[in-house]
Amino acid sequence: MPRSDPPAGLVDAAADGLHFHVHMVSDSTGETLMGVMRASVAQFPGVHPIEHLFALVRSPRQMERVLSHIEAHPGVVMYTLVNQDLRRTLEDRCAALSVPAVAVLDPIEATLSAFLGAPAQGKAGAQRVLDADYYRRIEAMNYSMAHDDGQGDDLASADVILLGISRTSKTPTSVYLGNRGIRTANIPLVPGAALPEGLERLKKPLIVGLTASPERIVQIRRNRLVNLGEEAPTSYVDAEAVKDELIHARRLFTRHGWPSIDVTRRSIEETAAKVINLLTEHRATLKS
């Protein structure tokens, strides 16, 4: 049976998998499109998008440049456009080129509109308005940076406090949470060093312990020392010493009733998502 021709824009398989062109057309920054596209393509192993991002497309002239590029490199088109004329131009030309085009927010907005009984605002870049939420996230980021690795005070005003031995992803998780508007402090657990006075009496912040397997901690610490040019033997990378640190940390979390998360096989995003779920439960408990 003869093999059918591949769709336009589908590049032949290379050594690292199949490649295809994907065009993201937005009247805003395009961040939403980029996130949706990458999350969707991640479900297809061995497939790699050749990304073309067109942001702040708000005039017919800009649209014509976009369409010329799509015609030269046909592939999947994903878009978020509120201007009906620009949408129609893009859709008609893609149809003429036999190129699939998807308005990624339409199903969500239609569902919300039906549920709320109100039409969508139809304003380009509406999610980027400098509102109170924007400034709250900036303030949370500043707080998280100022309270990294045991620095700063005023822990009582934190939303989340992360505890963990060295190399348990405390800093990147704090930064990620701060970017989500969650005021996050992180405190290292160092052998022989005391915790900040009064930490165990704090009620408002959610205190979470981060752990990992000893093997993972040793591996990361060794890589860190190599990068620093320090290869002399030290208890910092001694397997038994690391096990003792982790045992002490877990006992500490258990003694105070602090939830803990094993980050060994978790990405920063997955760890942060778990923290956010715990924070939601914590806040509900405080209100009850």
Rank of each mutant, 00 (worst) to 15 (best):
P2C: 07
R3S: 12
S4E: 14
S4K: 15
P6A: 15
P7E: 10
G9P: 03
G9N: 07
V11M: 09
V11W: 12
D12F: 07
D12P: 14
A13F: 12
A13D: 10
A13R: 15
A14S: 14
A14I: 09
A15C: 00
D16H: 15
H23N: 06
M24S: 13
S26D: 10
T29Y: 10
G30S: 11
G30W: 11
E31M: 12
L33P: 05
L33R: 10
R38F: 15
V47I: 09
V47N: 02
H48L: 14
E51F: 07
F54P: 00
V57P: 01
R58W: 02
R58T: 11
P60I: 08
M63E: 03
M63S: 02
M63F: 01
V66H: 02
L67M: 12
H69F: 08
H73W: 08
P74S: 09
G75K: 09
V76R: 06
V76E: 00
T80G: 06
L81W: 01
Q84C: 03
Q84T: 11
R87H: 05
E91R: 01
E91F: 00
R93V: 02
C94T: 02
L97F: 11
L97G: 05
S98A: 11
A103L: 05
A103Q: 08
A103N: 13
L105E: 09
P107K: 10
P107G: 05
F115K: 14
G117Q: 12
A118W: 02
Q121V: 12
Q121S: 13
G125T: 07
A126T: 04
A126N: 05
Q127F: 09
Q127G: 04
V129G: 07
L130K: 13
D131C: 06
A132S: 07
D133G: 07
R137Q: 09
E139R: 13
A146F: 06
A146D: 13
Q151H: 14
D154M: 10
L155T: 13
A156W: 13
A158F: 01
L163S: 05
I165L: 01
S166P: 08
K170C: 12
T171M: 04
T173G: 03
R180T: 02
R183E: 03
T184G: 01
N186G: 05
N186M: 05
P188L: 07
P196C: 04
E197A: 15
E200G: 03
K203R: 15
I207S: 11
I207C: 15
V208Y: 09
V208K: 11
L210S: 10
E215R: 14
E215M: 05
R216T: 04
I217L: 09
Q219R: 12
I220R: 00
R221P: 00
R221S: 03
N223M: 11
L225S: 01
E230W: 10
E230Y: 04
E231I: 14
A232N: 05
P233M: 08
T234N: 12
V237P: 03
A239T: 03
V242H: 00
E245P: 01
I247D: 09
R250M: 14
R251H: 11
F253C: 02
H256A: 08
W258C: 03
V263F: 04
T264E: 02
S267W: 08
E269I: 10
A273H: 10
A273Y: 04
V275W: 02
V275F: 02
I276C: 13
I276W: 06
A284F: 03
A284C: 02
A284Y: 00
K287V: 05
K287D: 06
S288R: 13
S288C: 00
S288T: 10
